[in-house]
Amino acid sequence: MRFSLLLMVCALCSVSQAALTFILGAHENVCFGVFTDQPRTSISYYFAVQSGGAFDVDYTIKNPRGEVIVTEDKQRQGDFIINADIAGEYELCFSNSMSTYAEKVIDFEIKVENDKNDFKANMPDQPNAKPKAHIENMGKTVDKIDQKLDELLRAIQYYKTRNNRNQATVKSTESRIYYFSIFEVLLMVGMAGLQITVVQLFFKGSRKQLV
């Protein structure tokens, strides 16, 4: 399966972003593509396996030439930035081929940002405009706020992932305790039945010797 997000970076929109949650079935491969028509573009990816199996997945990132940039196996989450020097479509593929039956729920986010310096350099001078230094300071403040918001969002996503994994661990532990308790009860009943049978055979043998 393959999906194209088509996050095109243009001169009027410096940042494009998309986030989604999807289910990756057993033995299934899913690819997402993001397109940029400008070089010197920053593409950031984030994903986290929320549930399923051992909370791991294989992933591969390819550039527009089809060359593999990053490939890793059995990762629970990933947070990385690619400097896209080549214009075209970049592809991120997830694979659950190692799983025999467990499907995975994955949170996934892509953010594309072009080179802001080129955009600022092309801004025309306007009459009665504020000093450039003041405008640059405002831009830096906005960038810091945006960075802090991204960090806050990632922290929330991290705690969400940890909470889901802890809940899955608790449920798995409860299930194991439940089945172990049933097995222990059955074992005790079986041992009691075996002891009763041995005692009955012992007394039957003693009676035959007395006769």
Rank of each mutant, 00 (worst) to 15 (best):
D56F: 03
L92R: 00
C31N: 10
R165E: 02
M123A: 13
A54N: 15
V9I: 15
M98S: 14
S42K: 09
F32G: 05
V105K: 15
D115T: 01
N163D: 07
T100L: 11
T173M: 10
E28F: 05
V211D: 08
Q17G: 01
F35P: 00
D37A: 08
I61K: 06
E67K: 13
Q157E: 09
L201E: 10
D107G: 12
S42E: 05
K130D: 15
Q75T: 12
A155P: 00
N83V: 05
Y46F: 13
F22V: 09
N83R: 10
V30I: 11
N63D: 11
E91I: 14
S44T: 04
Y59M: 09
Y178S: 12
Q77S: 15
L201R: 14
C10Y: 09
R207M: 02
V142A: 10
F32C: 03
Q195C: 08
L152P: 00
Q209E: 01
A87K: 06
T173G: 02
T100K: 09
A19R: 08
D79F: 07
F32I: 04
A102V: 07
H27R: 12
E91L: 15
K160V: 02
R162N: 02
I196E: 06
E136P: 00
I106C: 05
S4I: 03
D85T: 09
L24F: 10
P124Q: 14
L6P: 01
E151G: 03
V211N: 05
F47N: 04
M138S: 14
S97W: 02
T21S: 08
K160Q: 05
K144Y: 05
A192S: 12
V68C: 11
L194W: 10
Q17S: 13
T169H: 14
S51Y: 07
S172K: 15
T197Y: 07
E67H: 13
F3P: 00
E113H: 04
L12R: 07
S44L: 04
I106A: 08
V68E: 14
V198Q: 13
Q77R: 15
V30H: 01
T141F: 07
M138C: 07
F35C: 01
K140A: 08
T71L: 08
A102W: 13
K208T: 02
S181G: 13
L5H: 02
K204W: 05
L186W: 03
E109A: 11
T161C: 09
L210F: 05
Y90V: 06
I145P: 01
Y178T: 05
D58Y: 03
I81P: 00
S16A: 10
T197G: 03
S175G: 04
F32N: 02
